[in-house]
Design a protein around this nucleic acid. Structure first.
Lengths: 206, 206
DNA sequence: AATAGAACCATACAAATGTATGGTATGTAT
DNA sequence: ATACATACCATACATTTGTATGGTTCTATT
């Protein structure tokens, strides 16, 4: 049904998808600037071609009115900042080490990031190896919530329990002992709160 | 730190969040139209007030340039179309029966919908009661994928196995027998493919 | 009574945005 | 050699969009 896109058209479509997964679909001018075109008309013609071939739908007259027709069939690579141990700590990497493909349903805002889970200490919380935890570094952690923490440069995801003078990090798996953090502990840092767990069930099609 | 919003300002902010979770942040004109204002200036003044109180950040001169400063701290109610049984079938409801609060990280496009899981037959696939499955009705189901199907007006989520002349719906839990669907089966309908599973870990703050 | 803020409107304007037309160059298929 | 699609540009134009200013009404506070 759909004709093939030319290389340039594909590049533009990829850019649309990429921007789309951030927040806004770009304007013609923004697309032109990104690709170095001196003119919006060039973009306009490419978009018309892409629309003719059925990959996007444009809302006439509406700014940023580009819609992706394949929306949910499309999976977008998102950077994963590192792996986080459910049981024993693992290293958290400074830069993206990997990507996971999430459906376009998942929109990752600026200050949130993703970590891939390894280990089985959280299995009683129904979090498993390969799951993607979504971490918000700007949220106040409450007792009982799952958090990502760095202990001596190693990252863990555990349930946070606040007590009198101690913070405890619990695994759901009773085989692992709770870690006690004195308030004076130097090499402890709370990275963020786990706001969700996502697991990809179906891979990209088309 | 942040002052309180007036009722009208709160309504506008809610509208921003709602639209944001769909696809585009609205323009001033669109906001004005939605609230019945005859003028964009009214909206402009409200937005300025909301920004002054710290709830949004505006990108000057950029169309649809409103950003939510609380982004990931905010949870948006999404309609859940029904409950779907992992083990024995449950009813799927025609209209929204419930809502789940997803972080703004989750952007739900038009043709995708959410179902809440009940039952434990999928526990070996790490899907549990209370989890939200994201269903795409426009995706071609492949053998081995998890699908939502309606059998005699009851909905199930199971793994689809395509065989010669039969379609089988498997539970991961061996206690449940596979359901065999002859190609001539009248009361069977494939609803969609489960593209992901989401579980909310932390609730709304602020 | 005077003041201040909230809520709304009309008007105006510059810039951004989508759109249309005509033109040039290049490669490819017929 | 001709025709055609792709890729790009310049120019032009009507809306859309964000922004600013001044004015009116209402309510709450001092």
């Amino acid at each position: 049904m759909q004709k093939e896109l030319t290389k340039i058209q594909q590049n533009i479509l990829d850019y649309l998808v990429e921007q789309r997964s951030k927040s806004r679909t770009p304007t013609l001018a923004e697309i032109a600037k990104h690709f170095g075109y001196k003119n919006r008309s060039t973009v306009q013609q490419h978009l018309q071609a892409i629309e003719r071939k059925g990959f996007i739908k444009r809302n006439p007259k509406i700014s940023r009115g580009i819609e992706l027709t394949f929306e949910n069939n499309y999976f977008i690579p998102h950077p994963v900042l590192g792996e986080v141990a459910a049981g024993n700590p693992l290293t958290i990497y400074p830069d993206s080490i990997d990507t996971v493909e999430l459906p376009t349903i998942a929109h990752v805002p600026n200050d949130s990031f993703l970590l891939k889970v390894k280990g089985d200490s959280l299995k009683d919380a129904y979090i498993f190896t390969g799951d993607i935890v979504i971490v918000n570094p700007n949220m106040e952690a409450e007792s009982g919530q799952f958090v990502v923490a760095v202990l001596d440069n190693e990252a863990v995801v555990k349930r946070l329990i606040k007590k009198e003078n101690v913070i405890e990090l619990h695994s759901e798996n009773p085989e692992y002992e709770p870690i006690k953090i004195e308030k004076t502990h130097s090499n402890f840092q709370l990275v963020g709160v786990v706001i969700g767990v996502y697991r990809t069930m179906a891979k990209k099609v088309g």
